[in-house]
Structures are given as structure tokens and as C-alpha cells.
Design a protein around this nucleic acid. Structure first.
Length: 709
RNA sequence: GCGCGGUUAGCUCAGUUGGUAGAGCAACCCGUUUACACCGGGAAGGUCGUAGGUUCGAGUCCUACACCGCGCACCA
């Protein structure tokens, strides 16, 4: 017997060695797998953010996905798990900005090329670290196919898609309201914006014969349209287009009456003035009635010359001063304190979003969403857990156009030229256009980059080498997309839409969403709270196997998981239990030939049957992604049936030599079966034990053994 | 405002088509039996959020409500 077995199981001296064994075997690459494997199983790893180190959420991703992959590999599938790293556009830029800040620098004013190079170096350095951490988790992914979201091949395909969408009329450039973050100096899509409930003052201001209500008096300088509902009897004397002279913040103005059904007669006074440059709803009214639009607030949140004496002031500081002036002029009717409303903020820094009109690239989403809805509704894509289907279809049914321009350097440059005179935008992936195709004037390169999700939304077919690569033909559509629940719109829905648009096929047949990893008290982990659990500290302490099985037991898809050290510790004991049980089994089956047709006594026969039944159940549950229940059942069976009953029972039989052979056969075959079944969950300890089994000399790695269904 | 999820043993959570409530951890008692004290044996612990309804029978289905968490929304 192997001498290692005489001591307790030691993950530290085992895991790296075993991982190397796997990696050197080449079996992570589906092309090298033994046997005739007709059916493929493909899983694309969500590209890991390369800007930091592995956190608990990554630990969960690697665990669940590796379980899926190892199981399918053992089931005889030609199994591909394709790893990738994410440059993570805006996310990384924010991380890097913080670094710059610490060094007393700022990205503004920096040469974009220098900044880009710096972030690239930073990312590449960190990515080495990330990759070794992924290996630590035991991930059996095919490193030979690894991709980075800024690889040339990725950019090439993304450009092709942009060009094609543009030709198909799915992309347009235009002056539209965008969500602008005054701190980060970039626009966002609607998904990067958070709604935050706030309590503010609500001001009732006299606007000629009307009273208007607003929470943002600082936007009102240019308001020259008053909008009323056509059916509002209170205002029936006023007609659409009617001019009214009135005294306003900085002097007399002429206002125009607009009748629009969008007005809610119940709200405020039923009369509203509009600021089309800084409010989406107002913008739409202005578009409908073809009204003037004027910028009041600049990109940094400061008032423009139209604000007169307030010009140059930051809106936050100006607001009370403006109210003071209005009060002096007798234009404030009343102020409601404690007005509860929703403010939109930047999801990264919490700064209040200032809507601005900007000329940027937008994707027309309706036609894309309709195709996606069809495939989801007819179950060509299935969701686990199912309720994500409802969430997705609701979002798709109410989809808004997607702003894909970002004013940051860290990303894929938008391949387009912009006319310096008429602002016409032209897709130009070959960099050939030198004159505006509309007015013939000079053009300049679009300085913006793509929203990072525009490229990662194309990930499944991009990484497989669409359209000509063999991998694309073999492995696409992929089988499952496993990712965090909060990416259901950001990423999953967009992959479906873009995948259908570009390849005509769904990018994956199943979506499996896992929940968030919370701390032991069920609170969100955050650096400021100081409750962040580092998965690598846990694997260091208890072993990767213990961490992995601790992550899945009782963790149903979609729901968040509370992670505690005690739980992981319990599974460290489990790994050791298996280790010790193996010692007993091997000790007692020394020099014993396992017969091909074993004869069991009555109770052993029952036990043999019991495990077969269990394996049938488990196999079904594995196919239904119920890893949480399989892990628990295996744990329970191993400990409380195999160890507590079968091993204990065998002691007497072997000692008294009554039905000893039956006992020995049962011990050996059950251990063998259980090692295989446990392997996807706790790959290291099972592989290590496998190598010490007497049959192992001529045998292959456990990772490619046949699953005992 | 609309929607989604949750509410089951002290804690974390399971509970597949409705048929006498489960696991892990913690706590309690006993025990060093030749794989393992990173152990074994035993016992304890829940009117399944509330109120109705359907049913022979409801943790499970229906309806309201409460609380927690989350998402969506152009109410100035």
C-alpha cells in the first residue's frame, strides 16, 4: 500500500501535482480524449475579469462549471470547456483610474495611447495571476484554446458584425439622450444605471399663469415650453402653440403652450415645463413637436452661459441660490419637503447621472429581441432556474435601443469616421474613408470605444472561430451558458440576440444561472465592510476539494449562497474520511483478486443494489443540473452507509472469515464507484486515491474513467 | 407603480407530479471497538410567515395580506 495513505490526506502536497498530471495528459483538450466520442459538450467559460484576483464568485463559477465538464467528459462526450480572459472595458478602467489617483495622476489629459498601453500592461500582468488561480480551483479547461477579449481575431469578428449591422440598418448614429456620468466622463447604456430613492425638496414655481412643479430648478433656465394635457379642463382656455409672455428666472421670456397626452393630470399641477437636453421624457416631447433643444448643463455638471449670473457654477451649489433668487422675485409658490423620488446614478461611483444629448452609435434592438423571444419561447433555449425565462422575456419585450459608444480608451475602438462638419458617422473597418459620404467634408476617426458587452456579447461564436474554423462547426451551438444571475440582461440576453443575428443559431441551448456568494451572515461581500472571503485562503486552509463541495452542497441554482468557514471545514473532514476509508479497504483487499462475477451474500447484495439505484437517481439529477442534491447524497451515502454500515459490517466478516469474500468485493467495488461519482465534485483527492488503487498501474486517469450510471 | 424570488429545527438550506416533515453545521448525552477523535453510538429539536379557500388529505395548489431581498419603470 502507498505510504502516503498512512498519514492524513494533505491537499498541499497533492493538488498542484495532480493538476499538472491532468494538464500534461492533454485531456483538457477534447481532441485528445480517448475513445470514439460522437456527441460534443461545449461550455464557454465566462471570460474572467483580468484586472484583479479571483473572488468567491469566481470560485463558484469554476466549481460549478468544472463539475459539469468533468461529468460530461466521464459520460463519454467530446467535452470542451473554453477559458477566456476579459479586458472588462469600463470596469478595468475604473480600477486603473483609482490606481492613478493613488499615484497622484489622472487619466484626463493623458495621451490615450499611453494610457491604453499602461492599462494593457497592468491587465496582462494581472492575468497571469488569475490564470494560476483558476488552475488552483482544479478547472479542467482547455488552455490551448484560451482567448482574450482583445485578441485580434476577436476584434476582427466584432468589426465584421458592426459593419454588417450597419449595412442592415440595425445601427444608427444620432443626437439622442444618453445617460452621462459627470465623474467618469462617459455615457452608459440603461443597464449601467442604478435607480436610487431619494428625498428632496419639491418646488412649486410660478410660470406665468401656471404653476409648475420641479425637483430640479437648476435645469429650468431654458424652459420655454409649457406642456399640458389636451383633456385637462383646468387649462382648456389655452391652445396648442399659444404664446405667453412671462417673467422667469433671469428676466422676461416668451413661452409656448404644448398639448401632449403624455402629461399625467394627477401629478403636480398638471402643467410642466420641459428641458429636452437633460431629460429623456422631455426630449421625446420635443421630438414629437419639433421643439428647440438647448444645453443648460455642461459635461462636468456646471451651468452654461444661459444660466446668466449662475454660469460656471456646479448645479449642486447653484440650486439653493437659484431658489433664493426665485423667492426674491416672488416666483416660488411653495416648497414641499420630503418629496420621495427616484434619482438615476452611475453604478460605479454613485454620481447622479446627467442626461445629455450626444451623437453616438445606437443599436436598434427590437428586431433582434423579437428573434430571441421566439427561440426562448419555443424552448430552444432553456433556463435554469426557470423564472429567469420570465425575467428575460419581459426585458426583451420592453427593450430599448442600445447605446454602444463609450468615451473611454480601454476597449475596442469603434471603426468609424465622423464628419467634422455634419457629424455624419460612417462605419469604416478597413480605414479607407477620407471624405464624408454625405457632404464631402473632412472626416475624423471616432474616438470612442465599444461598450465592452458589445464584444463580449459575441463571445460564444467569436472564440470558436466563426465562421470558418472547424471548432465553430464542431462545437457551436454550445450546450450551456453558466454565469451569474446579475448578467442575465447585460450579457446572456445580448449573446442570444447577437448570436442569432450573426450565426442564425442560438449560441447555447441552456442557461444556468447561479446566485451571489454572500458571507456567513448572508450579507453582500464588500471591501468596505471587510467581510470579503478570499477563496484561495479557504483552499489553502482546507483544500480545494473541501472548498468546491462546500460551494455546491445545498446551493440551488439562482439563489444566493452563504459561505462560512465552518461549512468548508466540514468537507475537509469528508476528504479525509474518504482517504481513511480507502486505507481500510486497500488494507483488507491486499492480494485479493476481485472476481468478475462476484457472489454476494444477502445483505451485501442488497447494498450493491442500493448503490446502483442511487447512481441511477444521481445520474438523472446530474442531467438536471441538481448538483446541490447529488453532492449531498454522495456525501451522505459515503459517510453514513459505506463507512458507517458497510465498512463496519465487513470488519466482523473479515475477522471471522464468514462471507469475507463477499465483503471484500463489495468494499472494493463500492469504493471504486464512489470515487468516480465523487470525482467531478472533489477531483483532487479522488484522483490521488485512484492512483494508489492496485489496478491503477495499467489504468488511466480517473478524470477519463466511465461514469458509473 | 409593475414584476420576480424568499419566509420550513438555534444557523445555512433541501423537500421532484398534494399522501405521517429532511440534511449539514451548532448544541446535548455516552463511548478512545484493530480506517479515521478531521471518529463512533444515541437522544433532542419544527402548530412549514399570517388569514382564508380547494381537497378524503396542503410545506406542496388557489386568493389576499405581512415582512425580507432583488429587478424593471419617462411621473415632471
Amino acid at each position: 500500500m502507498d505510504e502516503k495513505l498512512l498519514k492524513p490526506y494533505d491537499p498541499k502536497t497533492t493538488e498542484d501535482r495532480i493538476y499538472k498530471l491532468w494538464e500534461d495528459s492533454g485531456f483538457f483538450n477534447p481532441d485528445n480524449l480517448p475513445g470514439d466520442r460522437k456527441d460534443t459538450f461545449t461550455l464557454i467559460m465566462p471570460p474572467t475579469n483580468a484586472n484583479g484576483s479571483l473572488h468567491a464568485g469566481h470560485g463558484l463559477v469554476m466549481t460549478i462549471e468544472d463539475i459539469m465538464v468533468r461529468y460530461k467528459r466521464m459520460r463519454g462526450f467530446k467535452t470542451l470547456w473554453l477559458p477566456g480572459l476579459d479586458h472588462a472595458g469600463f470596469e478595468t478602467q475604473v480600477v486603473y483610474e483609482k490606481k492613478l489617483e493613488k499615484e497622484g495622476r489622472t487619466r484626463f489629459g493623458m495621451d490615450p495611447k499611453v494610457l491604453y498601453k499602461e492599462i494593457l500592461d497592468f491587465t496582462l500582468t494581472n492575468s497571469k495571476n488569475i490564470k494560476s488561480q483558476i488552475r488552483k480551483m482544479g478547472a479542467s479547461c482547455d488552455w490551448s484554446r484560451e482567448k482574450f477579449t482583445l485578441d485580434d481575431s476577436v476584434i476582427k469578428t466584432v468589426y465584421q458584425t458592426f459593419k454588417r449591422m450597419n449595412e442592415d440598418g440595425l445601427i444608427y448614429r444620432g443626437n439622442r439622450i444618453v445617460s452621462w456620468c459627470p465623474k467618469h466622463q462617459t455615457s452608459f447604456s440603461d443597464l449601467e444605471i442604478l435607480d436610487e430613492e431619494r428625498i428632496d425638496n419639491f418646488y412649486y414655481l410660478k410660470y406665468g399663469p401656471f404653476t409648475i412643479a420641479t425637483s430640479r430648478p437648476e435645469t429650468k433656465f431654458g424652459d420655454k415650453y409649457v406642456v399640458l394635457h389636451p383633456d385637462d379642463k383646468r387649462y382648456s382656455e389655452y391652445t396648442n402653440g399659444q404664446k405667453i409672455k412671462l417673467e422667469w428666472i433671469n428676466g422676461p421670456i416668451e413661452a409656448t403652450v404644448i398639448k401632449d397626452e403624455m402629461i399625467d393630470m394627477e401629478f403636480g399641477t398638471g402643467a410642466m415645463t420641459i428641458t429636452p437636453w437633460h431629460d429623456k421624457a422631455d426630449f421625446e416631447i420635443a421630438e414629437r413637436h419639433n421643439l428647440d433643444k438647448e444645453q443648460i448643463i455642461d459635461e462636468y455638471g456646471k451651468l452654461l452661459p444661459i444660466a446668466g449670473e449662475f454660469a460656471g457654477q456646479h448645479i449642486k451649489k447653484a440650486r439653493p441660490l437659484i431658489i433664493e433668487k426665485l423667492q426674491k422675485k416672488g416666483l416660488v409658490e411653495k416648497i414641499d419637503e420630503g418629496y420621495k423620488h427616484v434619482v438615476r446614478t452611475c453604478y460605479k461611483c454613485g454620481t447622479v447621472i446627467e442626461p445629455q444629448i450626444k451623437s453616438q452609435w445606437f443599436v436598434k434592438m427590437k428586431p433582434l429581441a423579437e428573434k430571441a423571444l421566439e427561440k426562448i419561447n419555443n424552448e430552444e433555449i432553456k433556463y435554469v432556474p426557470e423564472h429567469y425565462k420570465k425575467i428575460t422575456t419581459y426585458w426583451l419585450e420592453n427593450i430599448m435601443d442600445w447605446n454602444i459608444s463609450r468615451q473611454i480608451v480601454w476597449g475596442i475602438p469603434i471603426p468609424a469616421k465622423i464628419c467634422t462638419k455634419c457629424d455624419h458617422g460612417m462605419a469604416d473597418i478597413e480605414n479607407k474613408i477620407s471624405k464624408c459620404e454625405k457632404c464631402g467634408d473632412e472626416v475624423k476617426q471616432d474616438g470612442d470605444t465599444f461598450d465592452t458587452w458589445f464584444s463580449s456579447g459575441q463571445w460564444p461564436y467569436v472564440v470558436l472561430g466563426y465562421p470558418d474554423n472547424n471548432d465553430f462547426k464542431t462545437f457551436y451551438p454550445t450546450d450551456i451558458m453558466e454565469t451569474a444571475g446579475d448578467l442575465v440582461f447585460f450579457w446572456v440576453a445580448r449573446m442570444i440576440m447577437l448570436g442569432l443575428y450573426v450565426t442564425g443559431k442560438v449560441p447555447f441551448k441552456n442557461v444556468y444561472m447561479h446566485g451571489m456568494v454572500l458571507d456567513a451572515k448572508g450579507q453582500k461581500m464588500s471591501k468596505s465592510k471587510g467581510n470579503v472571503i478570499d477563496p484561495l485562503t479557504l483552499t489553502e486552509k482546507f483544500g480545494t476539494d473541501a472548498f468546491r463541495i462546500g460551494m455546491v452542497v445545498g446551493n440551488t441554482p439562482g439563489t444566493s449562497l452563504s459561505l462560512s468557514e465552518d461549512k468548508i471545514k466540514g468537507y475537509k473532514n469528508f476528504a479525509n474520511k474518504i482517504w481513511n476509508a480507502t486505507r481500510f479497504v486497500l488494507d483488507n483487499t491486499k492480494n485479493f483478486q476481485i472476481p468478475t462475477n462476484p457472489e454476494y451474500d444477502e445483505e451485501d447484495k442488497k447494498s450493491d443494489e442500493e448503490l446502483r439505484v442511487l447512481m441511477k437517481e444521481i445520474t438523472k439529477e446530474m442531467d438536471e443540473y441538481k448538483f446541490y442534491i447529488v453532492a449531498e447524497k454522495l456525501y451522505h451515502y459515503f459517510w453514513h452507509t459505506f463507512a458507517d454500515i458497510i465498512i463496519e459490517r465487513s470488519k466482523k466478516k473479515i475477522l471471522n472469515n464468514t462471507n469475507a469474500d463477499s465483503a471484500k468485493v463489495l468494499l472494493y467495488t463500492q469504493l471504486t464507484t464512489l470515487l468516480k461519482a465523487l470525482h467531478p465534485f472533489i477531483p483532487f483527492v479522488t484522483e490521488e486515491i485512484w492512483s494508489m488503487m492496485p489496478h491503477s498501474k495499467n489504468k488511466q486517469l480517473l478524470m477519463i474513467e466511465k461514469w458509473p450510471s
